[in-house]
Amino acid sequence: MARKLDLRLSAKDIQEYEFQVTLKGFKPEDVDELLDRIVEDYSTFAKVSEKYEKEIRELKESEAKLRAKVADLETMNLKLSDQVLQFQIKISNNASIIKTLNNNKNGELDHLIEKAK
C-alpha cells in the first residue's frame, strides 16, 4: 500500500504562522509575500503527491490482476500442452494401427494374387 507523506506543515500552518517582530526584523510584507508563494507551491506539491499516490495504488491493483491472469494462462497452457501430447500419442497409435492393417491387407492381396496365378 502506498505510504502517505508525513508532512510536518500544511499549507494552512504556513499561512497562519505568526512571526515575532523585533527591531532588526524583516519587512512583514516581504515575509507575507514569500510565505504566500511557499503556500501555493506547497499546495501544488500536496495535490501532485496525492495524484501520484492514487496512480500508484491503481497500477498496483492492475498489476495484481494481470499477474492473476498470467497465472491462469500458464495453468491453461499446461493443460493444453498435456492435451496436445495425449492427442499426439493417440495419433501415433492410430497411425501404427492403420499401418499394421494396411500391411496385413497388402499381404492378403499378395497371397490372393499368388493363389489366383
Results as ranks from 00 to 15, higher is better:
residue 47 K to D: 03
residue 25 G to C: 01
residue 76 M to P: 00
residue 22 T to V: 15
residue 61 E to V: 06
residue 83 Q to I: 04
residue 59 L to M: 06
residue 3 R to N: 09
residue 24 K to E: 14
residue 84 V to R: 06
residue 108 E to T: 15
residue 1 M to S: 10
residue 38 I to D: 01
residue 9 L to K: 14
residue 47 K to R: 11
residue 8 R to C: 08
residue 90 K to R: 15
residue 35 L to W: 01
residue 71 A to L: 02
residue 5 L to V: 15
residue 89 I to N: 11
residue 101 L to P: 02
residue 62 S to F: 07
residue 37 R to P: 02
residue 12 K to Y: 12
residue 30 D to Q: 11
residue 83 Q to V: 01
residue 86 Q to C: 02
residue 72 D to M: 11
residue 44 T to M: 09
residue 109 L to Y: 03
residue 14 I to E: 02
residue 29 E to V: 13
residue 52 Y to D: 08
residue 56 I to A: 03
residue 13 D to N: 12
residue 95 A to N: 13
residue 39 V to T: 04
residue 116 A to L: 13
residue 65 K to Y: 08
residue 66 L to F: 11
residue 35 L to H: 02
residue 29 E to P: 00
residue 6 D to G: 10
residue 32 D to W: 06
residue 80 L to Q: 11
residue 56 I to M: 02
residue 93 N to H: 00
residue 106 N to P: 00
residue 76 M to C: 06
residue 7 L to R: 15
residue 75 T to M: 07
residue 56 I to F: 02
residue 81 S to N: 13
residue 18 E to A: 14
residue 115 K to F: 12
residue 52 Y to C: 08
residue 75 T to W: 02
residue 68 A to F: 03
residue 82 D to Y: 00
residue 51 K to A: 09
residue 50 E to C: 05
residue 46 A to N: 14
residue 111 H to I: 14
residue 60 K to C: 04
residue 24 K to D: 15
residue 24 K to G: 12
residue 102 N to V: 06
residue 96 S to R: 12
residue 16 E to A: 14
residue 16 E to C: 13
residue 100 T to E: 05
residue 99 K to P: 08
residue 58 E to M: 06
residue 103 N to C: 01
residue 84 V to Q: 09
residue 43 S to E: 15
residue 23 L to Y: 04
residue 95 A to P: 00
residue 27 K to T: 04
residue 23 L to W: 05
residue 25 G to H: 01
residue 72 D to S: 11
residue 39 V to H: 03
residue 34 L to P: 01
residue 63 E to Q: 12
residue 89 I to Q: 07
residue 108 E to Y: 15
residue 97 I to E: 07
residue 30 D to W: 05
residue 82 D to V: 00
residue 29 E to Q: 14
residue 8 R to W: 12
residue 16 E to S: 14
residue 84 V to G: 03
residue 85 L to H: 09
residue 30 D to P: 00
residue 1 M to Y: 10
residue 51 K to C: 01
residue 16 E to P: 05
residue 41 D to C: 09
residue 117 K to S: 12
residue 79 K to R: 15
residue 13 D to M: 12
residue 38 I to C: 02
residue 112 L to Y: 05
residue 10 S to V: 14
residue 47 K to G: 00
residue 10 S to H: 10
residue 14 I to M: 10
residue 43 S to W: 04
residue 60 K to N: 04
residue 17 Y to R: 12
